[in-house]
């Protein structure tokens, strides 16, 4: 493949990734190839192009507003973080697996900010889990050793907050939950 041709493909791939991010979607290798075919940049009869992975790597290297992430499905997904942030992208990626979605979001909040998160967070967009899904996920989390670090604390109003014991001590999590649920509202 000629250098000019590679450059054209990289540019098209970058635009396709950005377009998907603008629409709030992550995009994988197969969708990107389909996009190139739709735009007649690839021979529709050719099943694949041999050097697509290096081509995607080159696209990321030459378009620094783009990023790749490892999906929970195992495949690599692409997005433009300025249009579809890394945080939001990871939430979208995990939406098909409520258990992982909840556990990983709890871990992220506990490690990054750090803070526990209110259970009802998961009922709202972009999580949009039903109460039944949340209940079922909590049961799975409680029974699965893989998620043994996910714990909860209850505030004085009865609100449940989740946290990860990997990153937050229980007493500190309880303090932060009480502050979030009651303290801040009573302390305008």
């Amino acid at each position: 493949m000629l250098g000019e041709e590679r450059q054209t493909l990289c540019q098209a791939l970058a635009e396709a990734i950005r377009e998907a991010s603008r629409a709030g979607q992550l995009v994988g290798r197969d969708e990107l190839l389909a996009n190139l075919r739709e735009h007649s940049l690839l021979d529709p009869d050719e099943p694949d192009i041999p050097d697509v992975e290096p081509l995607l790597a080159e696209t990321l290297a030459t378009h620094q507003d783009l990023a790749a992430m490892a999906s929970i499905s195992g495949q690599t997904l692409y997005h433009s973080p300025s249009l579809l942030s890394r945080t939001y992208a990871s939430i979208l990626d995990r939406k098909g697996s409520p258990v992982v979605l909840m556990a990983e979001e709890v871990r992220r909040n506990s490690s990054e900010y750090p803070r526990p998160v209110p259970l009802d967070l998961f009922e709202h967009p972009p999580f949009d889990l039903t109460p039944e899904q949340i209940d079922s996920s909590l049961k799975t989390i409680a029974e699965n050793p893989e998620f043994q670090d996910i714990s909860y604390t209850t505030t004085s109003t009865g609100a449940v907050y989740l946290f990860s014991t990997r990153y937050l001590e229980r007493l500190y999590a309880a303090f932060l939950a009480e502050r979030a649920d009651v303290g801040l509202l009573l302390n305008p």
Binding site: G24, S85, T87, Y88, L121, P126, A180
Partner: peptide, 11 residues
């Protein structure tokens, strides 16, 4: 709330 344009959120 989480939003596509924001890396961070705070309930």
């Amino acid at each position: 709330f989480p939003h596509p344009q924001s890396e961070y959120y705070n309930p």
